[in-house]
Write a protein that binds this DNA or RNA. Structure first.
Length: 429
RNA sequence: GUCCCCAUCGUCUAGAGGCCUAGGACACCAGGUUUUCAUCCUGGUAACACCGGUUCGAAUCCGGUUGGGGACGCCA
């Protein structure tokens, strides 16, 4: 596993890491980590730590020492020297910025082919294979060189990486051959795309490991979901332990087409969020979502927010549900669900029932879950109707929704004034 | 522009010539259970991109078309 520490660990990198880990575990091989920190500007200690902690969080244990590529500079340069001597490379001033001579690797001049463990046989005609820089004119080795030299050094047998490296593979294969080293086996993973079929980015939701962690997702749930994205065991299993995944994982079952990452499928309840996230953290996250939806205002107290969270905690399965499911607690302009209105409110006699409830609630000495429920049942008894015939319209009128938390507790939290006002409104059409 | 890759329900996928009138899961819809909600149960809608070819037989093999994606740095 190789990782360039450039800030965050993207969902695609993460899946590649998981596949690598699963593959080595299945084959009984070693899972090694190499930090490609040759880019001084971007490779800060913090960035390296981000990679390391992401791996640790996911439980991607390594089997040997982590190799920092920056410590291998001399070996990279020595290899370039060797290639120069053997005639596989040459120096050239490509001009432009006037930096002087760079070292270029000379492609063999023949058609090339390799067998990808996922994509099958791939080949490329000689005229499409161009020579390329392996040492810059400032003396620094380029990624391609460093990569191949270190792969040889580490004894890498399998390279499982993203699709975007397919074209580089011809170059790397040629270098392994020129250096007289055995060519590793390659497997290129298809991309992860968003709902529009475009490459998944942070605009599409949580794209980085840290965000999942912060949002309370459990590592096992993310691990399971990602392992099953672009790969399947071949049977109907969907929820698998690491042991099961390891036992079943083979590269020939990896899908060769891009997979769409569906944020909603990584469900919070599977991650145990409502139960496991501390109440205050949950509340903060909840509030943050309200703010993003423009529903929060300083007029609401922490106690009120807390009461709402208590009601919603077991029901909000995904942070994207906060605004649609609990918005009515924070605005009087809550939207009405069309179907719910049609089914529960837009009916003969409902207007009159709501008025009766309103009067009953207004007359109560105290407004709490017990008293409102008793009052509602009394109204139902007097009219000889089922309580459900009052409960449903009341819920829709008060919240705009067909479902939600326990009705009477919800009314309690909303408070008498707002409930009475909502009940007095004209029925939306 | 050049080169390369990909194509099964909305989504993740099963499917390696007959077991496919294409299976599962999630989502969705409809009923049921639950005094309301959630949960749970039952049922349902829904896909082989298109056109040719090979074959007794094609989702599966071949060719083309269309659509999508990727790579074309002295970045990694």
């Amino acid at each position: 596993m190789r990782r360039a520490p450039t800030g965050q660990v993207h969902i695609g990198n993460l899946r590649a890491a998981i596949f690598n880990w699963l593959f080595t575990r299945h084959e009984g091989g070693e899972f090694l980590l190499r930090i490609e920190d040759t880019d001084r500007e971007r490779s800060t200690p913090e960035a390296v730590q981000t990679v390391l902690s992401a791996m640790e969080w996911l439980g991607l244990t390594t089997d040997g020492e982590t190799l920092y590529q920056s410590t291998r500079r001399e070996a990279h340069l020595a290899a370039a020297e060797q290639l120069l001597k053997s005639g596989h490379a040459y120096k050239l001033d490509k001009g432009g910025t006037g930096k002087g001579e760079a070292v270029l690797f000379k492609m063999p001049g023949t058609d090339m082919a390799f067998r990808d463990l996922i994509k099958g046989d791939l080949h490329k005609a000689a005229e499409n294979l161009q020579d390329f820089v392996i040492v810059r004119s400032d003396g620094n080795p380029v990624f391609h060189l460093a990569n191949v030299v270190d792969d040889i050094y580490m004894g890498i047998t399998h390279i499982i990486r993203g699709d975007d490296h397919v074209e580089n593979t011809y170059r790397h294969v040629a270098m392994f051959q020129a250096l007289g080293a055995p060519v590793p086996l390659y497997a290129h993973l298809p991309m992860i795309v968003n709902a529009q079929g475009k490459p998944y980015s942070k605009r599409d939701g949580a794209a980085f490991v840290g965000e999942f962690k912060e949002n309370g997702y459990e590592a096992d749930a993310l691990f399971n979901y990602l392992a099953l994205l672009g790969w399947s065991p071949g049977d109907d299993r969907e929820v698998m332990s690491r042991e099961e995944l390891t036992a079943a994982f083979t590269l020939d079952r990896v899908q060769s087409r891009a997979a769409q990452f569906d944020f909603k499928k990584v469900r919070m309840d599977e991650c145990g969020v409502p139960q496991k996230l501390p109440a205050d953290v949950y509340r903060q996250r909840f509030k943050q979502k309200l703010e993003q939806a423009g529903l929060w205002s300083a007029d609401f107290t922490e106690a009120y927010l807390n009461a709402v969270c208590e009601l919603m905690r077991e029901r909000v399965k995904n942070w994207s549900e906060v605004a649609p499911q609990a918005g009515y607690f924070f605005t009087e302009h809550y939207p009405f669900d069309e179907k719910a209105v049609h089914k529960r409110l837009a009916k003969e006699g409902v207007r009159e029932l709501l008025d009766a409830l309103r009067d009953a609630f207004a007359a109560l000495p105290s407004f709490d879950a017990t008293s409102t429920e008793a009052a509602l049942r009394a109204v139902a008894d007097v009219r000889g109707i089922n309580a459900a015939e009052l409960i449903h319209p009341l819920r829709v009128a008060a919240t705009g929704l067909a479902g939600g938390p326990s009705l009477f507790h919800l009314l309690d939290v909303l408070g008498r004034d707002r409930v009475l006002e909502r009940l007095g409104r004209p029925i939306p059409s």
